[in-house]
Design a binder for these strands. Structure first.
Lengths: 208, 208
DNA sequence: ACCTGAACACCGTTCAAGT
DNA sequence: ACCTGAACACCGTTCAAGT
């Protein structure tokens, strides 16, 4: 792609490409310069330094996580639909999401979703501090689940260790449970079941 | 501390000290050598390379997260007590926990807790795949919450952004909620409320 | 306003040589 | 078996000099 003059956007685009493919540890200023066909030091003029560059990528990611449209009839259904949409968005950009997490901005990225949650909690008849508590609980739950799930996917030794731990004692006592825990979890299912249970409990308990 | 001969344990101890204080990015082989009063290359004889050294620190951390004693009378109380104990352990070693997370070993670290959870779910009368589902849901919930909480603590711009988002529209519509969300969350409270709600819902629903 | 190459301080790692 | 210093390839960053 020929280019008259290097811009900040050019740098961010090339950097995003490298990070999405191989993760941030593979983004060196020298590789990036080679990719852009410029001197290493030109990059510094446009983005300051490496840390600011990564910050800019993270900021972009946070911005892109736009508003989400809830679907379904009941508040519980609609909250679950927001949660599932969030999960999908996050899973499409694992490296960038990890960087957002490292910088402590995960929660800020979730602010649009928080607005949707407030709307649904209101629809369920809750107000004030009580409603805020429910919103926070759901938010922690969804964000947390996605982080754990990412973690699980990268883990190389998970299932064997789990199987090792369970096989002797438990296999005899409750073999079906041992088998179920030895199998890899279906995260989508765990996710939906948990969110539904939590939201149902918190909205139901307060409404009733 | 004078020392006749450098051992692998000496290296791990010194490395742990550096990581606990300033995080892994501050652990360089040269600083570590200075700390130990040896040549940089001696370290390589004992631990291979930097990556293996960090892996060893992570492995140690995972091992130290020993068995946990549940307290309380009902299964729900006992699960909540395990969850709170885990939370406390993790918060004492933030940098090391982040490293465990980066290596995808968070779940393996939670295996002892998983055993305790299985015991309580059994006590509540659940068996087999159904019990496994509850164990997994609680595990995701607890691990996820701790990760999110760590994240929140490091975030510098959380509350202002949150306040900005809420002040115009919502302050009028539900000022108490806006105030509640503008205040920093009490994570301990969110944690206990969520775990209790989830466990209550999953155990209660299946038992009844 | 934008780009460049040279130079600096730092890094992890290898290796041949010591005891 | 354990330790060492020299050397290598790589890194982010600064800076004076160019246009």
């Amino acid at each position: 792609m020929p280019r008259v003059q290097l811009t900040r956007e050019d740098v961010l685009d090339a950097a995003t490409r490298l990070v999405v493919q191989h993760g941030p540890q593979d983004l060196t200023m020298r590789k990036l310069a080679a990719e852009l066909g410029t001197a290493v030091t030109s990059i510094y003029w446009h983005v300051g330094n490496r840390e600011s560059l990564l910050d800019a990528l993270v900021e972009r990611t946070v911005q892109e996580m736009g508003a989400l449209v809830p679907r379904g009839r009941t508040p519980v259904d609609r909250v679950v639909s927001v949660a599932r949409a969030l999960r999908r968005e996050l899973r499409a950009r694992p490296h960038l999401i990890a960087m957002v997490h490292e910088r402590g901005l995960t929660e800020r990225m979730f602010l649009p979703a928080q607005q949707a949650l407030v709307h649904e909690v209101h629809a369920a008849g809750l107000r004030g501090a009580r409603a805020a508590g429910v919103v926070r609980a759901v938010q922690f739950q969804v964000v947390g689940h996605v982080l754990v799930e990412r973690n699980r996917e990268r883990s190389p030794v998970q299932s064997p260790a789990e199987a090792d731990l369970w096989s002797p004692d438990l296999a005899e006592h409750d073999p079906a449970l041992a088998r179920a825990l030895a199998r890899p979890a279906d995260p989508e299912r765990v996710f939906v079941v948990s969110v539904r249970a939590l939201v149902g409990a918190l909205l139901g308990a307060a409404a009733g």
